[in-house]
Every structure is written in structure tokens, then in C-alpha cells.
């Protein structure tokens, strides 16, 4: 009976779809970046605009340079996607932008998100570049020094 067979086929197709989707999810793994070197001990935050501006959130900005050296040996001779992740954290919304010397992609990210900085084959045990970061957050969130954490992570293809 056609009417009886149709629901069965539908549920089978649905189940297969779910299984396929799960198996296609990439594994996301923090990358060992202990070989990196920060060129400044801390980030001095200054007002982005010297004067208060109507309609803005009174941003403070600060720059830092890091010689990034990440250990990608576990993924050698495979392909993967490397992200820079900035977790949601105190004291509130944080913006992070950066430029590089070309090994990784430049970009920007808001806290609670991650952004792709490399996609392709992993051909060397270590990947290096110089990142010039700029942090930005509202001055109302920065009454005193605050730590901000971020990291690189790998999604295997």
C-alpha cells in the first residue's frame, strides 16, 4: 500500500541524513602555541577618539604584537582549517582585529566567535607569522586592567 510505505521511507531518509551530518562534523582542537612570543608585556588602552562623540560607545583601543609559532605536527600532511577564537568573557564585548605578514589571513572577531585564519594542507610541523593585534572595547568596561584570553584551534578536514 503506497500510503503505508511512504512514512517508512521518510523516516529512513531522515535518519540517514542525521547520521551523515554528524559524521561530517569537524573535530576542533586547541593548538599548542607555547612557542609564541609576545613583544609587549601588556596592552596599553587609549581612547580611540580624544573627545566624546555622540552616538558612539566611547571605545578604547590598544595594540600588541605577537610572534606566533604554533605546533601543527599532529596534523602534518593532512588538511585543516585554523581559527582564531576569542571566547565570550568578562568584562564584556571585545573586538579583536589583526594583520599578519601573510602566512595567516588578517581578520577581525568579536568575543564569543572565531574566525578562519588558514585553510589548506599542513606541510610543516610549525607555522609562524607575526600578528599585530588591536583590541577594542568600551571604556565603561575598563575601570582597571583586565585579562583577555584567545587561542588558535584546528578543524580537521
Amino acid at each position: 500500500m503506497i500510503a503505508a510505505c511512504r512514512p517508512t521511507s521518510f523516516f529512513l531518509a531522515l535518519a540517514l541524513t542525521i547520521i551523515w551530518a554528524c559524521s561530517a562534523q569537524a573535530k576542533s582542537t586547541p593548538i599548542d602555541d607555547s612557542g609564541s612570543q609576545a613583544l609587549e608585556p601588556s596592552v596599553s588602552m587609549h581612547w580611540k577618539s580624544a573627545t566624546p562623540r555622540p552616538g558612539t560607545d566611547n571605545l578604547m583601543v590598544g595594540a600588541a604584537t605577537i610572534r606566533v609559532r604554533i605546533n601543527v605536527m599532529p596534523w602534518l600532511r593532512r588538511s585543516g582549517r585554523i581559527y582564531l577564537a576569542l571566547p565570550a568573557q568578562q568584562p564584556g564585548p571585545i573586538g579583536l582585529s589583526w594583520i599578519t605578514q601573510g602566512r595567516f589571513m588578517l581578520g577581525q572577531v568579536r568575543s564569543g566567535n572565531r574566525v578562519l585564519v588558514y585553510a589548506g594542507p599542513i606541510t610543516t610541523p610549525f607555522m609562524e607569522d607575526v600578528f599585530k593585534f588591536q583590541f577594542a572595547l568600551a571604556g565603561s568596561l575598563l575601570p582597571r586592567a583586565v585579562p583577555v584570553t584567545y587561542h588558535f584551534e584546528m578543524d580537521e578536514d
Binding site: P30, S36, M45, W47, F135, V146, V148, Y150, H151
Partner: peptide, 18 residues
């Protein structure tokens, strides 16, 4: 070994001209 060496950066943001 891989899990034991993973890191995160911590940047200390200082309001230099508060």
C-alpha cells in the same frame, strides 16, 4: 602530548589614559 601542550594567549588590557 598534544593535549598537554595546548595553550591560550592572555592579553592584559591596561587603561593607560583613563
Amino acid at each position: 602530548a598534544a593535549s598537554g601542550s595546548a595553550s591560550a594567549y592572555t592579553a592584559t588590557l591596561n587603561p593607560a589614559s583613563p
